[in-house]
């Protein structure tokens, strides 16, 4: 993990390459986070890639309810030669959950962005195959959001199917 100074330098470097892209930095428990502007995430990650963080290990979605903007997309980057990790965070609102897809630059993000789309409803502009991945295609709602209710999930059985419309039982 880059230390506090290293993180600031890295953020400086990214901010110089992509103006107005770095909204802040956070160094917590030895883990470095760069808070980036949603619209420029592709350029930010590209800059970090050129700086050595050439591997995108994971993409998480997070719901920061009740904070605003609520949704977060987190990219875990790895530098295999310097043995360093840095985290890039993007925050978007529930009303306009749009983030450019990084799948064209990082093919590994395809499934992971689909998972974030599936669970949090973040739209990834430019994703080659923006569909749900884990939940059924016809599922409504985004189950990992904090305000999504627990329980009461209607289960589709043949015996229920003829009786009525199961989607309206909710």
């Amino acid at each position: 993990m880059p230390d506090q100074t290293g993180l600031e330098l890295l953020a400086q470097q990214v901010g110089d390459a992509v103006p107005d892209s770095v909204l802040g930095t956070l160094h917590f428990r030895g883990q470095a986070t760069i808070l980036a502007a949603g619209g420029q995430i592709r350029e930010v990650l590209q800059t970090l890639k050129d700086a050595g963080f050439a591997h995108l290990m994971s993409v998480h979605g997070v719901d920061y309810y009740p904070e605003e903007p609520r949704l977060g997309v987190i990219y875990e980057l790895l530098d295999r030669s310097a043995l360093d990790r840095v985290r890039v965070k993007v925050r978007v609102t529930v009303d306009a959950p749009q983030v450019p897809s990084v799948t064209p630059d990082w093919p590994t993000a395809e499934f992971q962005e689909r998972e974030v789309l599936d669970m949090f409803g973040v739209q990834f502009a430019g994703h080659p195959d923006p569909r749900r991945i884990l939940m059924p295609e016809d599922y409504q709602g985004f189950p990992q959001r904090r305000d999504f209710p627990i329980g009461g999930e209607p289960v589709l059985f043949t015996k229920d199917h003829g009786a009525g419309d199961y989607t309206e039982q909710r």
Binding site: G61, V62, D63, E76, E115, R146
Partner: peptide, 12 residues
């Protein structure tokens, strides 16, 4: 926890 996410190797 407010969020637990596993980066599962099989998934990737």
């Amino acid at each position: 926890p407010a969020r637990v996410h596993m980066r599962d190797p099989s998934f990737v």
